[in-house]
Amino acid sequence: MTAKPPTPADLALSDAVGRGDADAARAALRAGADRERRDGQGRTPLLLAALADRVAVAEVLVGAGADVNAQDARDDSAWLVTGVTGSVAMMRTLLPGGPDVTLTNRFGGVSVVPASERGHVAYVRAVLAETDVDVDHVNRLGWTALLEAVVLGDGGRAHQDVVAALLAAGADPALPDGDGVTARAHAERRGFDPVADLLRRAESQGGEGPRVGGGGR
Score class of each variant (00 low, 15 high):
D134V: 02
V138F: 02
A3T: 13
D67V: 10
G153P: 04
E130W: 04
A58F: 04
S77C: 05
R106F: 14
V150M: 10
H186M: 03
P8T: 03
S14Y: 08
V88R: 04
P194S: 05
D39L: 11
R125W: 02
R189K: 12
R30K: 15
G215M: 00
V133H: 06
R26T: 13
V112H: 09
V68N: 08
V162L: 13
G65N: 06
G209E: 07
L80Q: 05
A56M: 04
E188W: 01
D75L: 15
S77G: 08
V135S: 12
L146S: 05
R37I: 07
E130F: 06
V88A: 06
N69C: 04
V88M: 10
P194L: 05
A78G: 12
R54L: 10
A22H: 03
V150W: 06
F107E: 05
L46I: 08
P96F: 10
A66G: 03
T7D: 09
V112K: 01
G42I: 10
A158F: 11
G63N: 11
A183N: 04
V17F: 11
A24D: 11
G216T: 03
R201Q: 14
A168E: 11
D23A: 15
T102Q: 13
A174I: 00
V55R: 04
T104W: 00
D100E: 04
D67A: 11
D72A: 11
E208H: 06
W79T: 13
A70M: 02
S87D: 04
P194K: 03
A158Y: 09
A89H: 02
V150E: 06
Q160C: 07
G216D: 05
V195L: 14
Q205F: 10
L141G: 08
V101R: 10
V127T: 13
A49I: 08
A66M: 11
G213Q: 06
L103K: 09
T93P: 01
A70N: 00
G98T: 07
M90C: 09
L166V: 03
L141Q: 13
L80F: 05
G109Q: 06
R74F: 14
A3Q: 14
L11S: 08
P96T: 12
V138H: 03
A168D: 10
R74S: 14
L103V: 05
G213M: 09
G156S: 12
R74L: 14
M1H: 14
L198R: 00
R118C: 04
H186K: 07
L13P: 02
P114C: 13
Y123D: 01
L146M: 11
R118N: 15
A9W: 08
N105D: 15
A202Q: 07
A24H: 11
S116A: 15
D172R: 14
S87A: 07
G42S: 09
V17P: 07
A115G: 15
A66Y: 10
A196L: 09
G40C: 00
